[in-house]
Amino acid sequence: MSQEPKEIRLTIDGQEVTAREGTSVLDAAMANDIYIPHQCHHPDLKPVGACRLCGVEIDGRMVTSCTTVVQEGLDVKTNSQKIHQARKTAMELLIADHHMDCLACAAANDCALLKDSAYLGIEPEQLQRLRPSNKGLPIDTSNPFFQFDPNKCIICGICVRTCDEIVGRGTLAFIDRGFDTVIGTFGNKSFIESTCESCGECVVRCPVGALAPKRPKFAAREVQTTCVYCGVGCGIYLGVSGDKVVDVRGDRERPTNEGSLCVKGRYGFNFINHSDRLTKPLIKQNGEFVEAEWEEALELVASKFAETKGDEFAALASAKCTNEENYLIQKFTRAVMATNTVDHCARL
């Protein structure tokens, strides 16, 4: 029997809140509608306390709320003058180091940096005193689905941790040290030359526009469905504009994938509206394919099946079918076509 997780009571900015044992102060505050700015924290990943924006005051000491676990009777201040000053310094430094081309940036309204800078009330006059970094590093556009602009990267490490902790691929790492630290791959190779599988998990978690999809997002509405690629059955939301699918995102509530997707599920939806896509069956007549009706095509296949038996026949099933469909194919092959020559594309 599993034990009920204990409820912890604490005070945040004078407000009494409860949270489950083991929750971070940051998550407890956010769950109770108390906003704490943060850049390097992601609920799926282990906390590191690197961006220092989520600092709060407990017993007069500044601690990072993402790495501090709730304790009974804790008295947390999220916005003392001291905290505000430290956060402002950190935020101003981040912006001075960031390539600010917000209008052309794919992150647009999803940008965590913009959001927290507005929250902290950063003024342009304050920023003008600082020396901007102007790193001028090359943008890596080698991957067909996303690009990496190190000039926008805030070195929060969410992508590195995602690749390690969630994907288990370990393609990304912090390279070099200090101000020169960059997110990179082995030997500083481009994404396409690296071990990257293009799953895009890092891209969806990037808080800014450093890792950004090449295709801009402009879905008008979303449709909840299941990915058609394989039998895992990942939950997805298709972003739709008019009658076209323009975007895909993972469904965090679906237990099969908890929001994660692979390269095909996330980026392989072009075929849906592609001009090369077959929407009608083709029958070869006099050496050329000619469009036909389904009725006609199925009848042709059935008549050919009827002429074939045993080892003259083989069936190759698809990962795009469900388990049930694949079961039926093998049953049909063995029972009707009288052969055991049946295989599946996922085995190749």
Partner: peptide, 25 residues
Amino acid sequence: TEKESCGKCVPCRLGTKQMLTILED
């Protein structure tokens, strides 16, 4: 310190650089 900062946290990674640039100026 700018060269020896590990680069993990924002105030140190960017702050030492910022202060250094101002001092160089």
